[in-house]
Simulated assay, not measured.
Amino acid sequence: MIKRPAPILEKNLFRKRDAQINLSTFALLFSEIIQLSEIGYRVGIRIFELTMQRERTIHRENRVLNILLYINTTIWKFLFGKQADSLEKSTENADEYMITDNDPLLSKFISIPKEMVSFNPYAFIAGIIEAILEACQCPSRVTAHTVPIDGKPLRTVILIKFNKFVLDRENKLGSK
Results as ranks from 00 to 15, higher is better:
113 P>G: 03
24 S>L: 13
173 L>F: 14
117 V>N: 05
166 V>C: 11
83 Q>T: 12
87 L>Y: 04
30 F>I: 03
87 L>H: 05
13 L>S: 09
116 M>Y: 15
44 G>A: 07
98 M>I: 11
115 E>I: 14
83 Q>W: 03
67 I>M: 10
13 L>T: 05
56 R>L: 01
31 S>L: 07
39 I>C: 00
88 E>S: 11
98 M>W: 04
75 I>D: 00
119 F>M: 03
102 N>R: 06
147 V>P: 08
58 I>F: 08
59 H>E: 15
60 R>N: 12
50 L>R: 13
143 T>K: 12
121 P>D: 05
118 S>Q: 01
41 Y>F: 12
155 R>M: 04
134 E>L: 04
58 I>W: 08
27 A>W: 10
151 G>L: 10
84 A>P: 07
48 F>Q: 07
103 D>K: 10
156 T>V: 10
126 A>T: 09
69 L>W: 04
21 I>D: 03
11 K>H: 02
88 E>K: 15
9 L>C: 11
63 R>W: 01
145 H>C: 11
82 K>G: 02
128 I>L: 13
170 E>V: 06
107 S>N: 10
1 M>Q: 13
42 R>H: 13
49 E>I: 03
133 L>W: 00
169 R>W: 05
60 R>P: 08
167 L>K: 11
142 V>Q: 08
56 R>C: 00
124 F>C: 07
151 G>N: 14
26 F>Q: 11
58 I>S: 06
39 I>E: 13
18 D>T: 05
74 T>W: 09
22 N>E: 15
147 V>N: 13
71 I>N: 00
85 D>E: 05
141 R>H: 12
13 L>C: 08
160 I>V: 15
14 F>G: 10
12 N>H: 06
137 Q>M: 11
61 E>R: 06
91 T>K: 14
64 V>Y: 04
58 I>N: 04
151 G>A: 13
34 I>C: 00
33 I>T: 00
25 T>H: 13
160 I>F: 06
94 A>R: 10
25 T>I: 14
91 T>E: 15
163 N>K: 10
19 A>W: 08
162 F>G: 00
80 F>E: 06
